[in-house]
């Protein structure tokens, strides 16, 4: 445990990171091109690592510091690197991502989601300490917003990154509430890389066989049409 003033400062800085983190979730809904999506995702992951670092320092927990390190490595370096290697062409394409719902409309939905997230989490926040107060509702909100972002994107790369953003949200809550089980987060953090690798290869195969990664256009499988 770190002493009085420094601890307060760490808590405050964590709150600052929390604010920026939820901000990044909204920004993640806005870009129209895969590249912009990746940029925002890297920023968000960086904030997650920063929060893990602050909390690790605050609780004197080596596991959380390791989580910070792994998040930093996996999500801001390895995953973007993997994506760039496997999906170079798709990532650089200037094509606008097709959206099921327009950006303003989906952002308004995001407000509702955020409010709901806070309402759901509110009963859990009685005397649980300032960092949980910040991280749990924000992490939960970002998780739900991520699910929604995923649902309205119809392109492979943004969908993939949205999945990872959901992951970010869950972990943002996780590092505050389950700091003792950081070993899980380590394993899951590493698994994120595997997941992205698998999904990226799949996306590349799709690009090779179908010609584009606009997965929203793949609608051959549904009821009522003979296949």
């Amino acid at each position: 445990m770190t002493g009085g003033f420094a601890a307060n400062l760490l808590v405050d800085l964590d709150a600052l990171v929390g604010g920026l983190f939820i901000l990044s979730a909204f920004f993640l809904m806005a870009p129209r091109q895969a590249q912009g999506f990746l940029k925002h995702f890297v920023r968000q992951s960086f904030l997650l690592a920063l929060s893990a670092l602050l909390l690790g320092w605050l609780h004197g927990s080596v596991e959380l510091l390791l989580v910070a390190l792994i998040t930093l490595l996996a999500k801001t370096l390895i995953i973007p690197g993997l994506l760039t290697r496997t999906l170079e062409r798709e990532l650089r394409s200037r094509r606008e991502v097709e959206l099921a719902v327009s950006v303003p409309a989906s952002l308004l939905v995001a407000i509702v989601i955020t409010v709901l997230a806070f309402v759901f989490v509110a009963p859990l926040l009685h005397g649980v300490g300032p960092t949980v107060d910040i991280n749990l509702p924000i992490g939960f909100a970002v998780t739900l917003i991520g699910v929604y972002t995923l649902a309205v994107r119809r392109e492979a790369v943004p969908q993939m990154l949205a999945v990872m953003a959901i992951d970010n949200g869950a972990f943002f809550a996780g590092i505050a509430i389950a700091s003792s089980s950081a070993i899980v987060e380590l394993a899951a953090g590493l698994e994120g890389v595997v997941v992205v690798l698998v999904v990226a290869i799949l996306a590349r195969t799709i690009a090779q066989h179908v010609g584009s990664t606009a997965v929203g256009d793949l609608t051959s499988l549904k009821e009522g049409t003979p296949s």
Binding site: V147, A170, H209
Partner: peptide
Amino acid sequence: NTPPALEAAWKYAVITITGATVAVL
């Protein structure tokens, strides 16, 4: 590796991994 198979795999991967991520919370 046909388009329908890839579509199925994509849906499978994205939807179930999303579910798992929600479960982790």
